[in-house]
Design a protein around this nucleic acid. Sequence first.
DNA 1: TCTATATTTCAAGGAATATTGAAATATGAA
DNA 2: TTCATATTTCAATATTCCTTGAAATATAGA
Lengths: 119, 119
Amino acid sequence: MKESQALLAFAALSQDTRLRVVRHLVRAGPKGVPAGALAEGLSISPSNLSFHLKELDRAGIIAARREARSIIYTVNYDGLRGLIRFLLEDCCAGLADINLSPPASGAPRSSARKERANA
Amino acid sequence: MKESQALLAFAALSQDTRLRVVRHLVRAGPKGVPAGALAEGLSISPSNLSFHLKELDRAGIIAARREARSIIYTVNYDGLRGLIRFLLEDCCAGLADINLSPPASGAPRSSARKERANA
DNA sequence: TCTATATTTCAAGGAATATTGAAATATGAA
DNA sequence: TTCATATTTCAATATTCCTTGAAATATAGA
């Protein structure tokens, strides 16, 4: 994932309504949710939802398919995976000092120790 | 990590200058970088850098310590870890359908298959 | 074809963010 | 204390983003 793509994705997820859309879609799974139901579920106007859906789509975080009169939105798992990988590998863990376990008390030479020592 | 905290973090990382600051600090490691050197390295004005540093700090992504006349900035590893965990657990992988390996060709019932089938 | 439904697009205004340069604060040295 | 350095704060402007409501587009059924 290129940095510019990551910027788009972060921007997409940095807005309350859009984050709620994503979580809604994640819960729904691969079968997806039609735009109308989303707007209902989140209590926002169709036009406003549409604006945010376009943003999420542009960022590669969701996908759309038409089904009769409805447009069904789903999460784009590859897109989310790419963003997580960017955070882990390209952006932030060049140091390998990041693992996902909670900061263990007996952890060896973790930078978190230094931070606490400085507080 | 609360959703509101995640929103702050995404917003913090969704801006070009700030993402560059973070990557710079990650490269520097726990010893950190003084604000002046950061401004030089990124070719932005001290005042503008300061604005963005405050934003990153507010989001819990960096930490600061004073050392004589300089203020040394470091990445806050716990903060970044928290964000990655939010993406993996709280936000997006409730489905467990996300793992970090690239979409394998023989992967079982991955939603990516459905997406390609619909393209 | 005409009508109803589902959604998007567009334009306008309002709100939040980013950039700039000047002034303020904190530290250390002469 | 006075001066120089390192950084932040502030106010003004510029830019980008969000919301709203009205009009446009696409689909399906009578």
